[in-house]
Simulated assay, not measured.
Amino acid sequence: MNPVTELSAIDFAALADTGWPTLERAGVAGWQVRTAGGVTKRANSAWSAGCAADASPDALAAVERAYRERALPPIFQLAGAEAAVRAALVGRGYRLVDETLVLAASLASLADQPRDIDIAITRAPDDDWLGAWWAVDGRGGAAELEIARQIVTGVPALYASLRVDGAVASVARLALVDTWGGLYCVATLPEFRRRGYGERVTRALLAAGAERGVTDAWLQVVARNDGALALYSRLGFAEVDRYEYLVGA
C-alpha cells in the first residue's frame, strides 16, 4: 500500500472520535467532555474538537469538575499544537502518558487481493471475538466489557477473526467512516503470537474494507509499541499525526 496523499484537510482526531465513539459527551468550557465509564482513555478524555483549546484556569477547572462528578479522573487528549494547554496542565500536576502516533495508508492495492479463507469477516462481533480482544486489551469485569461492547458496535464496522483448533486466536476491527476505515482492536492471544496471525487478520480486514468502498485507512498506536509499528510499516502505513494524553489526579 502507498501512503495516502493530500492529508492536510483530514481531521484525524475527528475521524477517531467517530470511529471509537464515547457513550456520553457534553460541551464544557469549549471542550468536548467524553465519558464511557472509564473504559479506554479514547472514550473518556476531553478533546478540543478542532476549536481553539481554552487553557484558562476556569476552563480547565470546569472540565475537571465534570469528570470528578462522574467519579472519573480528568484526562485531556492534546494534539502537538496545543502546547499552551499542555503547559497549563503540567502546572496543575498532570502527568503525560501514552504518546500516540496516527498512521494512515491507501487501500488501493488491496482491492483485488486474494481472500484469506481462514479469516472470518462479520458485521457484528460475537462473544468469542469480544472475549479474545478483551483478554488482550481489556481492563475490568463484566460491566466494563458491556461498555466496551457498546463502544465497538457504536458505528458501522467490520470484525475479523482467525480461529485455530476452534478457538479465536487473533482479531481486529475496522470502523467504517465514509470512505475511511479506522483500524482498532488488533489483538492476538499470547499463546498464538509470532505466527503471523495478526498480520493476516489485519490484511484480510483491510482488503474486506476495500471491497466495500473504503479507500484509505487510519490507526492509532502507542509510540513505544515497536512491534506494532513494524507490522503497520509492512502494511504501508505512515505517520500523519500524533497526540498525547495528560492525566490528572
Rank of each mutant, 00 (worst) to 15 (best):
G91V: 07
D54S: 04
W47G: 00
D116F: 06
T153P: 03
G140V: 01
A59C: 12
A143H: 09
V102Y: 05
A105V: 13
A132F: 01
D54I: 02
P114R: 09
G80E: 15
R70C: 09
L162Y: 02
L110M: 12
E146H: 08
V136I: 13
L158T: 01
L162D: 00
A108H: 15
T40A: 14
A66M: 10
A81M: 07
G50H: 05
G154W: 03
G37L: 02
V33M: 06
D116N: 11
R86A: 08
A83C: 13
R42S: 07
R34P: 06
L162C: 08
V63I: 09
R25K: 14
S109H: 13
A108G: 10
Y94I: 01
E69I: 07
D98G: 04
L78W: 02
R95H: 14
A157G: 12
L78P: 01
A108I: 11
D118C: 03
D127S: 13
G131Q: 08
L107A: 03
Y159P: 01
S45G: 13
D127I: 06
A59N: 07
A87Y: 01
C51W: 12
A43D: 05
D118V: 02
Q113Y: 02
A83Y: 05
E24S: 13
A83F: 07
G140T: 00
K41C: 11
D165C: 13
L101C: 07
F76Y: 14
V39P: 03
E146I: 04
A105D: 05
L60A: 00
V152F: 06
E99P: 15
A62N: 04
G154P: 04
A71Y: 12
Y67N: 05
G50T: 04
R163N: 09
A135L: 10
P125Q: 08
V39W: 00
V63K: 04
A84Y: 01
I75M: 11
L107H: 00
A105G: 12
V97C: 13
R68W: 07
W133Y: 10
E82A: 04
G140Q: 01
A81S: 15
S109Q: 14
L103A: 09
Q77P: 01
A160Y: 02
L130Y: 03
S109W: 07
G50P: 03
A157E: 04
D137K: 08
Y94K: 01
A157M: 09
A26Y: 05
R115W: 03
A79C: 10
R34W: 10
A157V: 05
S45L: 08
P156A: 10
A111H: 13
V97K: 14
A142M: 11
A104H: 02
T100S: 12
A43P: 06
V63G: 00
W129P: 00
R68D: 07
A52S: 11
A62R: 05
Q32W: 11
A29D: 05
Y159D: 02
V39A: 02
A135G: 15
A36G: 08
L107D: 00
R139Q: 13
